[in-house]
Simulated assay, not measured.
Amino acid sequence: MTTKKKRSAHTDNDSWVVIAPDSALDTGRSEEGDPSFIKLKNPATGSSSLYLFGCGDVCVYEVKAFSEDFRSWFIGQTVQRDGRLLYVTPIDPLFLLLPYISSTATEGKFQPAKQMIMDEDYPGCTRLLHCKQGLDSLHHVADEKEVDCLKFHRYNQEKTLEWLKKKVQRTVLTLKKSNISVGGGVKSSMFVRVKHEDATEEDYLRYAHGLISEYISEDLSKALLKHLQLPEISSPKETEPPSKKRKLSDKPVEAGEDYTKFNSADFARKPPKKMTAAQKSLAKVDKTGMKSLSAFFSPKVKQEKN
């Protein structure tokens, strides 16, 4: 008698399908260290996120994943069960350094960057100290003092908001140049795009603010909103029909999100239709002792013999 061979559980999670720029995976300078994935604290949420450090830690890239249930990859003659598709894009390392710099604001004293960039939960954060782009940009978010060829920094909120404001303004220019549709229609749950000429300057600023807010804390995002002098978004009127109410969001849609959830408000249970006269009369009939129609099709229970 033959038995079916059981498949062993696949536990290899070291392989992924990645879309990345050539610069991120350049291994031509192996003496400076190969590219590697490192878990760091997300500057917006504080949770763990995956980042890619290029050769020699010169550049840092953020990693986002598009994931669906029951998805896998056929690679050559093998099956990769981890069906996620990872996107690797450059990120300004100053966004990753900012939470550590701002956390020392209460101390109010100048400190070396090496003393501020420490985290027991994410020891890999020290690799940010090797990133020249990030260290050279610290003056955008902190006051700087040099003593005996050593640089010391102290967090400056006003400088940070000005730096973020410039980020928003450059993002607005890119949106306009790329002819990206913005405005209330894009931020609605229905994803209805508005015409390019219908978007106002406030629409662009608010949309760009939402994109930048993906890389900063919620408190800093609110402070930036005030710094940009953007008015608060008024909530939908209570008299507006539920089907026409739209949830506004300044956050860009990430590939890993479930798109079906954005329109959940439109799938609310509808009230029952009015009954006809025949249905009303049938409802008044005494159904005591009557079997339901499904009872005639259910399997009969066999009675045990004594």
Rank of each mutant, 00 (worst) to 15 (best):
T2I: 11
K4D: 05
K6F: 06
S8Q: 12
A9I: 14
H10F: 08
D12M: 10
V17K: 01
S23R: 13
G28D: 05
G28Q: 05
R29Y: 11
E31R: 12
G33E: 05
P35S: 09
S36P: 00
F37L: 12
L50E: 13
Y51P: 02
L52C: 13
F53H: 04
F53R: 02
F53T: 03
G54K: 08
G56C: 06
G56Q: 04
V58R: 14
V63Y: 01
V63T: 10
E68M: 09
F70P: 00
R71A: 09
Q80H: 13
L86K: 02
L86Q: 02
P93M: 07
L94F: 03
L94K: 02
L94H: 04
F95A: 01
P99E: 03
P99F: 05
S102F: 01
T104D: 04
T106H: 09
P112N: 06
A113W: 02
M116I: 11
M118F: 08
M118G: 07
D119K: 02
D119S: 15
R127P: 00
C131L: 04
K132F: 08
D136H: 10
D136Q: 14
S137A: 15
V141I: 15
V141Y: 00
K145Q: 15
F152R: 01
R154N: 07
R154V: 01
Y155H: 12
N156L: 06
N156D: 15
Q157N: 08
K159A: 08
L164R: 02
K167T: 10
V168L: 03
R170W: 00
T174C: 11
L175P: 04
K177V: 00
K177R: 14
I180Q: 02
G183Y: 02
G184I: 11
G185Q: 04
V186D: 03
F191I: 04
V192Q: 13
R193H: 06
V194P: 00
E197K: 11
Y204K: 06
L205D: 01
L205R: 10
Y207M: 11
G210N: 04
L211Y: 13
I212M: 07
D219C: 09
K222R: 14
K222D: 11
L225Q: 12
K226G: 01
Q229E: 15
L230V: 02
T239V: 13
P242Y: 10
S243W: 11
K244T: 12
K244L: 15
K245D: 03
K247E: 06
K247A: 12
A255P: 07
D258C: 09
Y259K: 13
Y259D: 07
T260G: 05
T260Q: 13
K261E: 13
N263H: 06
A265R: 06
R269N: 11
P271F: 07
K273G: 12
S281H: 07
S281E: 13
L282P: 00
L282Y: 11
K284R: 13
D286L: 09
D286W: 02
T288F: 08
L293K: 14
S298D: 14
Q303M: 10
E304P: 04
E304K: 11
K305N: 10
